Amino acid sequence: MHFYLIPLIKLFEQHADASNAEGMKAYMLNQFDFYGLKAPVWRKLSKEYFKKELPPFEDVEAIIKDCWQHPKRELQYVAIELLSCYQKQWKKETISIIEYMLTHKSWWETVDHAATALTGPYFKKFPEQQRKITTKWNKSSNTWLQRSSIMFQKMYRKETDTDLLSKHILHLKSAREFFIQKAIGWALREYSKTDEKWVTAFVKKHSLSPLSEREALKRISK
């Protein structure tokens, strides 16, 4: 365990809540163990900890991997936040550790957290990487990389590349995987906040799964 994490882990242990932990584990289908720290708590604790001192960027990959090996799920959330702190120092090669987080101990909450904190910002910083890498993800056999290829633009609003969004959605629109169908609907619903007409026309033109269509039009139909 990297020495930087030891005081933070002790801090999390001091604030652990066993009753919350049980419910959180059940909500995640008993896949992960928790300290029982709800989002406002672990965010506050980690943010205050980061403010005191951040490790050298060169150490961050090793720290992230230690977080990912830790049995408590909150440490994976912290790893995402930690890497986000270094956006100015990211290099093109940073995508490799992002991919590691997307493909290990994968579940919707870490993948979607990464879409906001990591993948979206990364492709804004390195736009020349966007089409090449997300197309690779989209055509992979990994559900979570596929989901990420659809979700990474969810915060882009007017900067959304609708051509790329369309391409990635249409390649996976027949996928039977729940998390892909949901991602398609969610990405379209987010973009409907910027351009309702585009989303309405897209859904009308293409035959999406009932789940994807329902999610896509949820905000518009209201």
Rank of each mutant, 00 (worst) to 15 (best):
Q69F: 13
P71W: 09
V203T: 10
A115Q: 06
C67M: 06
L8H: 12
P56C: 04
A26M: 10
G36F: 01
T119D: 05
Y4C: 08
I169Y: 02
F123I: 01
A115G: 03
T103G: 03
V203A: 07
R73L: 09
F50W: 13
S207A: 06
K154N: 05
E99W: 08
W198T: 07
Q14F: 12
L5G: 09
I64W: 09
L217E: 04
L145N: 01
D17L: 03
A21T: 06
H70I: 02
V41I: 15
A16E: 08
S209L: 07
G120L: 09
E81A: 13
T119I: 08
T94P: 05
L8G: 12
S84C: 10
T134I: 04
S212Y: 02
I184V: 15
N142S: 05
F57G: 02
L29E: 14
S19E: 14
W144H: 01
F3E: 11
Q181H: 01
K124A: 04
K65N: 00
V41E: 06
T103I: 11
H104D: 00
Y156C: 04
E159S: 15
A183K: 04
Y100W: 09
R147L: 09
I6L: 13
L5R: 13
R73K: 10
Q89N: 14
A115I: 11
S149N: 06
P71E: 02
F12Y: 15
K136V: 08
A39K: 07
G36Y: 03
T194Q: 07
D66A: 15
D112P: 02
S149L: 10
Q14D: 08
A26N: 11
R214G: 10
Q69C: 11
S207P: 00
A39W: 06
E109S: 09
S140M: 06
P7D: 10
E13C: 13
T200P: 01
H15Y: 11
K44N: 14
K65W: 03
Y35R: 01
R189P: 01
I220S: 08
P210N: 06
Q130C: 12
A216P: 05
Y49I: 08
L8M: 14
R131H: 08
S148K: 05
E74A: 07
M24H: 11
W186A: 09
K173L: 03
E99Y: 10
M151G: 02
Y122S: 05
H113D: 10
L188Y: 05
E109W: 07
K88Y: 12
Y35D: 00
V203E: 06
S221T: 15
F34T: 01
K158T: 13
K125N: 05
I150P: 00
Y122F: 14
I180G: 02
Q31P: 05
F179G: 05
W42I: 02
K158G: 00
Y100A: 01
K136F: 05
V78S: 06
F126S: 14
T119C: 11
K193Y: 04
I6T: 15
I98P: 00
F34S: 00
L164Y: 05
S141P: 02
L5S: 10
E190F: 13
W186H: 09
R43Y: 13
A18D: 12
W198R: 03
E128K: 14
R43C: 10
C85F: 08
